[in-house]
């Protein structure tokens, strides 16, 4: 399957061909005109999957938890695609993606598809590539798409923007005082999981989170994120968490909530796409000469970068 055009790839992917889905994600990651054509062809077939984000500190047990959750859903007859995102090395641009190690029990099941993705040094962080991969998995017909990302800086905010339901994993022993709970986490979590509840201190992490959630401002009718214990390694607590995820999705389906979430996601995606296209076209204008000349003129301080950008965007 070396030289597949995007139309063939899209048709195979929509037919549930696993290899086509794998190739399609690679194409979307690489980008370019074929990738855009592919996304265009499958986009009308998206929107059927429940999309769940899972984030938390390194080593919190995210992959172990996702594995247990997927096993639970498989037993209930749902199919699952998992997108596991890990950071790229800022020095080499390479990455070691190790999340599959914890997901080996899912092997051999055609109802499960696991894909590892490196964050790379992308414009707008991982959001763009993640959105595309989720759309492809959704179009391939999976009932649930789970995104795992390490909670570090911007990525957890991005995952919350992509997924209507975000699960944040905390653990005991990372300092269980209120200050250790990262700022911003209360705003993005729809469900809190305190994993490694077999360890000492889980109860106090749960209590502290509940206190903070009560103190946080929210409207009377809005969702109060539940705080649930889990021992992901042994599958304990998973059924209750899965039920809560479904409840949150049912909540999102009421009124305009899902549409409001979608609007924020789409506006961000659109802004990124416009940026990307604008830069690509500006660089290509006049066979690249316009860009190079403007760079020279900015260096010589004949023109400032903002005016140079205006020239490029207005160029016919």
């Amino acid at each position: 399957m070396n030289n597949l055009d995007s139309a063939t790839l899209a048709a195979q992917l929509l037919g549930g061909h696993r290899h086509a889905l794998a190739r399609a994600i690679t194409l979307a990651e690489t980008g370019g005109a074929e990738a855009r054509a592919l996304l265009g062809a499958v986009y009308p077939h998206t929107g059927g999957a429940l999309v769940v984000g899972v984030t938390g500190a390194p080593g919190a047990g995210k992959s172990t938890f996702v594995n247990a959750l997927a096993q639970h859903w498989r037993a209930a007859g749902r199919t699952i695609a998992i997108l596991a995102v890990d950071p790229s090395s800022p020095f080499s641009g390479g990455a070691i993606l190790g999340d599959r190690i914890r997901m080996q029990p899912l092997g051999g099941d055609p109802g499960v598809f696991v894909r590892s993705m490196a964050s790379r040094g992308r414009l707008g962080g991982i959001a763009h590539a993640t959105d595309d991969a989720v759309a492809l998995m959704d179009a391939a017909g999976f009932d649930v798409v789970v995104i795992e990302t390490v909670g570090a800086g911007q990525s957890e905010v991005e995952i919350a923007a992509t997924a209507p339901t975000t699960v944040v994993i905390e653990t005991p022993g990372t300092g269980d005082d209120v200050q250790s709970i990262k700022a911003g986490i209360l705003e993005i979590a729809d469900v809190f999981v305190v994993n490694k509840a077999d360890r000492e201190g889980a109860d106090s992490v749960i209590r502290n989170l509940q206190t903070m959630l009560r103190l946080a401002e929210r409207s009377v009718s809005s969702w109060m994120p539940p705080v649930l214990p889990a021992v992901a390694l042994r599958g304990e607590g998973i059924a209750a968490i899965a039920a809560t995820i479904d409840q949150h999705y049912a909540y999102m389906l009421q009124g305009e909530r899902l549409r409001v979430h979608a609007q924020a996601r789409v506006e961000r995606a659109l802004a990124l796409s416009v940026q990307e296209l604008a830069v690509t076209r500006a660089r290509a204008h006049g066979g690249g000469a316009t860009w190079r000349q403007l760079v020279e003129r900015v260096i010589a301080r004949q023109i400032d970068p903002y005016s140079a950008a205006d020239v490029l965007l207005d160029a016919p």
Binding site: A95, L97, G98, S116
Partner: peptide, 9 residues
Amino acid sequence: RDAGMEVIY
């Protein structure tokens, strides 16, 4: 990885 490749382990 140090050579810039993405390694799935």
